[in-house]
Design a protein around this nucleic acid. Structure first.
Lengths: 360, 360
DNA sequence: AATTAGCACTCACAACTACTGAGTGCTAAA
DNA sequence: TTTAGCACTCAGTAGTTGTGAGTGCTAATT
């Protein structure tokens, strides 16, 4: 029994844990003591290594799949690795350029951006990339346009200050004259511009009635229109790309694991909720790598995600956090690289989004 | 050796093929002669059945996985079954109602409709549902709206006669005055209304220059706007739902099969092309079940689809075919039920779409 | 001529056994 | 404190055998 833990000893232990994880990430096979002695020149024998490994296992950083197998990291091991053992990787310039290139193509719509982004994430990571489209609830309205269609329908177009556009068809029994409609539009522009969708939903709507009532009829319409147009909270749409990548991995040989994961990825709604959890709690996390956050295996509450790791990042429109993006991969991943990729993409998306909103 | 093929004999042979396929669809296990003798009261011995089965195998309708196994259908067998052996099933009323219910929720946008549709297809079939969004290229323009944004950008909104709306942000160096913009919009509405997007792209654009030139500046802008707005052919977007269902099936135990299929489903672009093939060739197919078309296993050219069957249908906007929807499932499926489901959904989608376009 | 009983034959699949080797934990020596 | 040495464990592989479902063929039967 060791009694005195010298600094040197602890240092070596860290090195060893790092070596095990590093090796396992590369090979996907349990790491034995002899391999460590051979490949990482630590100048200690495999026997000594075994002692240290046993200790690391006691402390919960490693496990055995079975008695006569090498060690593999536990979630706690990965966590230690990610938090302090891992060298933070800066993305190679060529890779940075490659990302930029993905965004060369026309991006005029949010959908294009989201699509390009998930594709990029998937391509760069070789795992599954995801992105949740921006919540517009906190976006300020810049412009409202009402276009009369036939059949008692009106097309409402909202332009947010962030540059996002949303259109929606409203339908009524009967329809105001196109003159009235223009007046309503003018009025709505005056009153709603600068307010967020949320504000409109919660408070502004009630106060419409209180606006000085130039024309009663018009007010009735305005109320109806606003009510219909704003009652839909835009469900955060989940973009996914590269789902099949996970089938290629030596992890996930177990059919049951794949099934539960595939199930979850199919249920976009649940998935969206699980993934956007990161956005709220994000502030409480370390900001070590920009806005990037890592959740490993069982650190996820959702059962289907307990066999994977998430590397996520919140992206912004003009410093306001609006959405989450990232990758879903096996626990055994090159965290430093993935963190770099996700961080880089996230910054880029924020930049593009802020630009999309106009120079203003 | 039989020399004389009596009508009665051929009839029995058909019945037998039908029985084999029917049984295999239910159990997913090779069907032996004794099971057939027992469960389908044909009043002939297993030995006789064996003779007939051997004959059916020679003719290419059945195979063995191995010597001592029962028979399973070949693609040709399934084809015969689908074409003439199968009883066409009418959907139970309750099921019909269930489909209708799926569409009760607000459907105001094409995306909503597509989403609901793939979900319905997947839920009803318990396989993977897909839909390709309508091609708007042949839709006639009903209305054009130009909304000035800041930063040299213009938001263009198109409303098609079919009721589909598309918006797009255009960006220029410098921007016309909002007065000019209004004039341009008025003019475009006059000139473009009633033309299809394709027409605008191919011919109308060239002739803009020839329009009587009230204001040269305006014409320059009009041309720029139309050019930017119409050069994007809207890539047919593929909606997929229920991908994970295929993992539950006893078919697709083979990892390699799943991987190739998953890969294909990931490549939305390729998949879209593969699936929309049905639309062109559809006219050449039998109209036996409305517009529903069945492609079994190797009848598909795309390698990744050669282990599955497609049941597809073209849907319409006011009698104009605009898109394809359907299901992807194992070859071993209840074709009659699937045909009924896909047909029913397709008709419903056509109806909703035509209504979405307005009463006009 | 068509059907059927009988039988030899085939072959996937499952269960069992034995072997191998990577890797461990422990002990005793350095 | 480190290391050499050694007994032990156990997943994975390969070889063995048995079993049974189902076939194809032949000869007897209707």
């Amino acid at each position: 029994m060791r009694v005195l833990a010298t600094e040197e000893y602890e240092e070596r232990k860290r090195k060893l844990l790092q070596a095990v994880i590093h090796h396992y990430i590369r090979t996907a096979k349990p790491v034995g003591s002899s391999v460590l002695a051979d490949e990482y020149k630590l100048d200690i024998s495999s026997a000594t290594i075994r002692n240290v490994l046993a200790e690391l296992e006691e402390e919960g950083y490693l496990t055995h799949p079975h008695t006569s197998a090498g060690r593999i990291p536990t979630d706690r091991g990965y966590r230690a690795y990610v938090d302090s053992l891992m060298e933070v990787q800066r993305l190679a310039i060529e890779e940075e350029v490659r990302i930029q290139q993905e965004y060369q193509s026309r991006i005029r719509e949010i959908q294009d951006l989201m699509f390009t982004t998930t594709r990029a994430l998937s391509a760069l990571s070789q795992f599954t990339g995801f992105a949740i489209s921006p919540t517009l609830d906190e976006s300020r309205i810049k412009h409202v346009e009402l276009i009369p269609l036939d059949g008692g329908r009106i097309l409402a177009v909202f332009v947010a200050e962030s540059g996002c556009v949303r259109h929606q068809i409203l339908s009524f029994k009967g329809v105001p004259s196109s003159e009235t409609l223009r007046s309503i539009a003018r009025m709505l522009n005056q009153r709603l511009a600068g307010h967020t969708l949320n504000e409109v939903r919660s408070s502004v709507m009630d106060s419409i009635a209180a606006w000085e009532q130039e024309q009663l009829e018009m007010m009735g319409w305005a109320q109806k229109i606003v009510r219909q147009a704003f009652d839909i909270c835009d469900e955060d749409k989940v973009y996914l790309e590269g789902t099949s990548h996970i089938l290629e991995l030596p992890d996930f040989q177990d059919f049951e694991q794949i099934r539960s994961l595939a199930h979850l990825l199919d249920e976009k709604k649940v998935l969206g909720e699980a993934l956007s959890q990161g956005m709220q709690t994000e502030a409480s996390r370390t900001k070590k790598w920009g806005d990037v956050m890592v959740r490993i295996g069982t650190e996820n509450r959702i059962p289907g995600l307990q066999n994977v790791s998430l590397v996520t990042s919140t992206y912004h429109i003009k410093d306001r956090p609006v959405g989450v993006l990232g990758i879903i991969g096996p626990r055994r991943m090159e965290y430093s690289k993935m963190i770099a990729i996700v961080g880089s993409v996230s910054r880029l998306v924020s930049k593009v989004l802020s630009k999309l909103g106009g120079e203003g």
